[in-house]
């Protein structure tokens, strides 16, 4: 009798215990949901970290976040195939034009960088970009004069932003190109949406810009590999990206215009209309997407001394890492990076 009872009790206790254990592991199993789409002329990957039970919800949120990014893209790209705000603004130059808040935000943050960088960072370079794009198809290198002429006489200082009525007026001889602004801005918008949807752990990787929200469960940072400008299959080192941090790189190595085998960077000086090649790459660590995008481009165009001055003028925490043309790494003191053991760079 006793044996039967004990067996019964063992069964009654053990079976639910085992089932509960398995259920617990199934529900609380940490998962990563990620999706990649080609937007903003680059591949954007959104990764959400959560529990297994929320999987479907997370997938839906990712899709909606991509819609947010898509909307920013539509409204801030100047090319003909887009009909959003930026393209219309360029067509209606010379008079006030009604735009949405996204474009007001982007312009009001990015336009002052023209003065801060001594004219190097210029959002009115759409004609210059077009000149280089057209020249590549005909394979004729633009002359210095052509490039300079494409700049026009007006500067971003001549853009009038009417915040109260959501109107913008750009000068007649200028067309805006937010290529160095909107990618970063879309990260800010995406993270705003994610927070609104109740997400507190996410990593958004837009090629050259990565934004962190929260951190994985087992550590308080995301590990980001910084690609080697020489060899894309290798890395310079890894950076620990903490909550609310953004890291962005501008480099001449992954996007360029090629004339007779010579590569020209896609980043143009706002004073000459010609590409610069002061560095192989500039990596910026800060806490806002749009600032990371603007700064990585600005610092790419400036000398290290001028870059320092620019950083001291703006109100954001900024750390920077340069890879120079002679393969030296120059970084600000607060830029924490764990270098790969096999990288060939000399650190300074």
């Amino acid at each position: 009798m006793l044996i039967v009872n004990v067996k019964k009790i063992t069964f009654i206790i053990l079976i639910p215990l085992i089932i509960l254990t398995l259920l617990y592991f199934y529900i609380n199993h940490n998962i990563t949901v990620s999706q990649t789409q080609f937007l903003m002329n680059t591949t954007i990957e959104i990764k959400l970290y959560g529990k297994n039970i929320d999987k479907q919800k997370l997938e839906k949120i990712i899709n909606n976040t991509f819609d947010v990014i898509k909307e920013v893209e539509d409204n801030s790209t100047s090319y003909n195939e887009y009909t959003g705000n930026a393209a219309s603004l360029n067509k209606n130059r010379g008079s006030y034009y009604q735009v949405n808040q996204e474009l007001i935000d982007q312009l009001s943050i990015s336009a002052p960088f023209y003065n801060l960088t001594g004219g190097e960072f210029n959002i009115g370079l759409f004609r210059t970009v077009n000149l280089w794009r057209d020249s590549v198809t005909t394979n004729t290198l633009p002359t210095k004069e052509q490039a300079l002429n494409s700049l026009g006489a007006s500067t971003p200082n001549d853009i009038f932003i009417d915040v109260f009525n959501s109107r913008i007026k750009i000068p007649p001889d200028m067309e805006i190109d937010l290529g160095a602004v909107s990618k970063g801005y879309s990260l800010d918008e995406a993270v705003k949406f994610l927070k609104h949807s109740g997400i507190n752990k996410a990593l958004i990787n837009a090629g050259g810009n990565i934004l962190a929200l929260g951190s994985p469960d087992d550590r308080d940072y995301y590990t980001i590999a910084v690609q080697d400008p020489h060899n894309i299959s290798r890395m310079i080192g890894t950076v620990k990206l903490k909550d609310n941090q953004v890291i962005a790189t501008s480099g001449s190595y992954n996007r360029y215009y090629e004339f007779d085998g010579k590569k020209y960077s896609h980043i143009f000086s706002g004073t000459s209309g010609y590409p610069t090649d002061l560095y192989k790459s500039v990596t910026v660590l800060t806490n806002k997407g749009i600032i990371s995008d603007i700064l990585s481009t600005s610092l790419f165009l400036l000398s290290i001394e001028d870059g320092e001055k620019l950083i001291s003028k703006i109100n954001y925490p900024v750390e920077v890492l340069y890879v120079t043309n002679d393969d030296k790494i120059i970084k600000s003191e607060g830029f924490e990076i764990e270098f790969s053991q096999d990288n060939q760079y000399k650190s300074e």
Binding site: E45, K47, L203, G208, P216, T223, A225, L241, T249, T283
Partner: peptide, 11 residues
């Protein structure tokens, strides 16, 4: 493994 723990690659 390094590749496994890396969450993102900055291009």
């Amino acid at each position: 493994n390094n590749d496994e723990t890396i969450d993102g690659v900055l291009q």
